[in-house]
Amino acid sequence: MELLAETAAWFGDPAHWSGTDGIPSRITQHVQLSGLALLAGLVLALPMGVLIGHTGRGGPLAIGIANIGRAIPSFAILVMVLPLVLGLGLGLGFWPTIVALVVLTIPPILVNTYTGLRGVDPEIIEAARGMGMREHQVALKVELPNALPIIIAGTRVAAVQVVATASLGAVVASGGLGRYILDGFARQEDGRIIAGALLVAVLAIATDQLFGLLERRGVSPGIRVGAIRGPNG
């Protein structure tokens, strides 16, 4: 009960709602870090996934590497990139966190894009070719839309992981909501710790829900289940 009161008091303090260390600013930093990393991850992993998914070449190798990549502990990668990023003169905080987060987004997006494209019914692909589509058209206009639900599912996994790991960025002097937790540990302020944990948890769950919604809604009705079988089915 005392803990609840402390947390409520922390939220109630107007000082915690303004400035660099204020809640709106920390949320913005967190979303910026996560959003940029996810965008960069999509830019990198999506074309790669479409390419190997469409051609089938290098697939098992890429998937093997990506699967090992999934076993990299996110905290370890965050700290391991720090000396490298500092060596490049990019400074603390923002860039080390972004680089680590991007590394984390690639495996789920790549694997799901590849799997999604490989899973498209060969008959549909043949039909597209029969209609005179070029290979890149087949990949982008037929395979990619059909694989979209699986790709979004992979992006959802990546997004939730990124939001979670962005909070660990505080360890390498980044902004974001993790600051409240680590600063709370250091200052022994339970209210600050719990408030930070609540905000991060809500943001992660909201991200998960948002992508869940996209997964269900974001797919064009033309290729919902049923249509996948196509005219031949």
Partner: peptide, 16 residues
């Protein structure tokens, strides 16, 4: 939902 909560946050809930 438990799985979605970031690890640092979950540990943070527990430490106090």
């Amino acid at each position: 939902i438990l799985y979605t909560i970031p690890s640092l946050a979950l540990f943070a809930f527990l430490v106090p």
